[in-house]
Amino acid sequence: MKYVAKKILVLFGTLVVLSFLVFVAFQAVKGDAALSQLGDNATKEQVEALREELGLNDFILVRYGRWLSGAVRGDFGNSSNYSMTVKELMRDKITVTVQLAMISLGLILLIGLPIGIASSGIRSTAGDIAAGVFNQIVMAIPPFFLGIFITWLCGLVLAWFTPGGYVSLSENFKEGIHFLFFPALAIAIPKAFMLIKFIRDSMAGQKSMGYVRTARSKGNSHGRVLYKHMLKNALIPVITFFAMIVAEVFAGSIVIEQVFGVPGIGRLLVVSIANRDFNVILAIVLYIAVIVLTANAVVDVLYHILDPRVSLE
């Protein structure tokens, strides 16, 4: 209980500090919402008037205070680019990104875990080298290339889905899955293979441990030593790595969402930065921070559950 309360306090503290830093950082960026709303043809007077109206000329702490008092009530202001509130805008985009992220994570685990575990049991040198080389190749493929490749192969050649189209899951589940599956695959493949490499390395590190020798001296078979003894020990460090993947995937893949035309957080971020849509950017930064911090807190708890030597303090 104490632990949870502490973590929540840290979370809010971090969010306040972070949002303030983003606020300050944006002072250095040329152009603002007034300029981008009115376009290049507006006169100086028009821009100035709009600035005054939007409250952009106030002292930074005043503006931050105004934003913060809204934010704690769940009001993140309006988007200057889209004519809707940030809250409404984010809700739709987050839904899409979270759906995409869930499918990606499912695929990462489905591909990464079994292959990682099975391939760390390979005992022949040749097999081990082959597995290592294949792994390196897949990890080295950049996601955008993989995205384009999958679009070409599955979308154009095999015509399993229509590239560039998108149907939301709530509208039509079957169609929606179709459109989300392939971008999810493009996100998942390189990360799954990183996971495989990480599991293999972690398992290899366990091989020289004393308890493994003890397990063998008891008459455990190779497989039993691997699954009953080494696996749980080897998975402990993997959790931290997996949490990094989780945070990355939930933050929305800018490249993949762009390539497949998925209307998620990643695309919204690109559009908002281009348009100086300050309120939206701020909200996205906070969303990502929440994801990263939550993932880390979950890691701590999982560590405690898996490794009896770690206590939550």
Partner: peptide, 28 residues
């Protein structure tokens, strides 16, 4: 053969080691 070793280890010949801390599985 491998299966002869598995039957021998632990039942007819067993072993203890120098570092009891690292010789026991920490998560069991």
């Amino acid at each position: 053969k491998e299966k002869d070793w598995l039957a021998l280890r632990g039942s007819r010949i067993s072993m203890i080691f120098q570092e009891p801390m690292t010789s026991l599985n920490p998560v069991m």
